[in-house]
């Protein structure tokens, strides 16, 4: 099961996190959950919306960049936040992912709002194998 830690010394004005996963699927899913946690209290998001997302990118790190950018995009374009994610990452060329997301539309009366992420950044952006699994460092501009 993946883990994430917020790194306070890396992004004083914004939000930095280190994400670990047993494998790439786990890391991508954990990063998605961590991002949802930045935006809202996940327990207060109404459920009922499921989405399937497919993405392709020329490298694994760009696939992670595009994946998190997609989640930020849906937050603004459709007001959707997904606290649950199952992801399958394929390392073929180009790299691909298929994800199933579960969450709902932000209800401004009942959803506990936190920060409003603007973008994923390349600042200290790393995705690398680590201890038999994978590790990423992400800085989100909020």
């Amino acid at each position: 099961m993946g883990r994430h830690t917020f790194l306070e010394s890396v992004a004083v004005a914004d939000c930095a996190m280190e994400v670990e996963g047993d494998d790439l699927d786990d890391l991508f899913a954990t990063a998605a959950r961590a991002l949802a946690e930045v935006m809202v209290d996940p327990a207060t998001v109404p459920r009922g919306v499921e989405r399937r997302v497919e993405l392709a990118a020329p490298s694994l790190d760009l696939l992670l960049f595009d994946w998190l950018s997609e989640l930020i995009y849906m937050k603004d374009a459709e007001r959707l936040v997904f606290p649950e994610a199952e992801v399958h990452v394929d390392r073929a060329d180009p790299c691909r992912l298929v994800a199933r997301l579960a969450g709902g539309v932000i209800d401004r009366a009942t959803t506990a709002l936190r920060a409003d992420p603007k973008a994923v950044t390349f600042h200290q952006f790393v995705l690398e194998p680590h201890g038999g699994g994978w590790r990423a460092r992400l800085v989100i501009d909020v």
Partner: peptide, 26 residues
């Protein structure tokens, strides 16, 4: 924010074509 993301992603890929290297991907 989306325009910033779109073009950061574009420039990240086209810099090589123009022979530009930068010290920070951002």
């Amino acid at each position: 924010h989306q325009i910033g993301t779109d073009y950061l992603r574009t420039f990240d890929q086209v810099m090589r074509r123009y022979g530009i290297t930068v010290r920070d991907r951002e």
